[in-house]
Design a protein around this nucleic acid. Structure first.
Lengths: 198, 198
DNA sequence: AGCTTTTACCTAGGAGTCCTAGGAAGAGAA
DNA sequence: TTCTCTTCCTAGGACTCCTAGGTAAAAGCT
């Protein structure tokens, strides 16, 4: 009887694929074993439990997406970089919904997955170099960008924009226009009401 | 033997409570039955399946939150309304993480839960009355607000802001300042690159 | 009050998943 | 070739979801 050649890496990769197909909540150890032509119990020498499987998928996704975002960012600056970076997130979520969902799991700080998470915030900071924001505004802006990207993608995935004729693509690009303007007009510590601009 | 007096409503309420305690992913029919002092099979005369339980929790949360938001909105306008509305979302997510997570489930359009979802977007539109935006910009702005609120709350819940000294509260209020400014300076159809402002 | 109808809850059980314990067989090293 | 390590196995317990069919309590009717 030849062996199936299961390793933690191949397992993680296959788990990511499976999660994209059936949704993260339907990612099961049993089905994964079935795809490797192996009994479910056999997988527990490679992974500790089902939760670890999800954490591994999260780590994979975080690293993959960081690579894609880095590539998209190369040679771009300012709004150009903003749009490219944001587009990478949205495209990744559309192509890999299971992996994207996995990224939201609560991972402990000192794993390599947390390192990938750090790359994301570093890249977001890099985008902000085009907008000259000092701390602590920079951190606030990083969080704003993260919120906007993730929020839109998350709502779109959940079907929140499906029941209105306005195309999500349009709203997406107008939102990025708005954020671009907002970053250039970053308000001072106390923002005075000022309607004279529009 | 006295009956436990289970109804779909009491079940949904208890399910929401349970989800808040142990997380939506750990909401099980069995545990719910246990809390009612009843066998799990007995619950299936009240609910169709475990998924319907989650959908019901989503509907409950959507309606609850809509009521809270409406109350917060009463008598406020402009940025005041924006901040109050946003705060209601964040507070609700902190107090009811299970219910909040449930709201993200993909619910079909013609249930009463979808009606509650509609109330949310209507209220968001109401906030925008203070910023005089015409369609289709208004829809884009509704989606921007939804993205920003949900994105921040979601990342905060996932622990995304825990490993940085800057307090999430600060970032939150600065984000709302920024969004307020952005809504007042809503860009025209084609935003020209313009770095002369900062 | 007695009768019927409804329904809340039950027992029994199958199917699926997660995970542990301990054993057997393949693959590489001595 | 034999020893050792690792991969994969069988067996099985605990839990969850859900169905089918039965019993008893409540509610409605005469």
């Amino acid at each position: 009887m030849a062996r199936a050649g299961v390793t933690a890496e191949r397992l993680t990769e296959a788990a990511a694929e499976l999660a994209d197909e059936v949704g993260l909540e339907n990612l099961t150890v049993s089905e994964l074993a079935r795809r490797f032509g192996v009994k479910d119990a056999s997988l527990y020498s490679h992974i500790r439990n089902a939760h670890e499987l999800r954490v591994r998928v999260a780590g994979l996704a975080l690293a993959e997406l960081a690579d894609l975002a880095a590539a998209a960012l190369a040679g771009r600056a300012g709004k150009d970089a903003l749009v490219a970076f944001a587009g990478t997130y949205r495209d990744y979520a559309r192509e890999h919904p299971g992996r994207y969902t996995a990224m939201q799991v609560d991972l402990d700080p000192d794993t390599e997955a947390a390192g990938a998470a750090r790359r994301h915030s570093d890249m977001t900071r890099a985008i902000l170099r085009g907008y000259s924001l000092a701390e602590p505004d920079q951190t606030d802006a990083v969080r704003l960008l993260g919120s906007v990207f993730h929020g839109f993608v998350s709502l779109e995935m959940a079907g929140g924009f499906r029941h209105h004729p306005r195309a999500a693509d349009e709203s997406w690009s107008r939102m990025l226009d708005t954020i671009d303007v907002a970053l250039r007009n970053w308000p001072a510590e106390r923002a005075e009401p000022d309607a004279s601009h529009g």
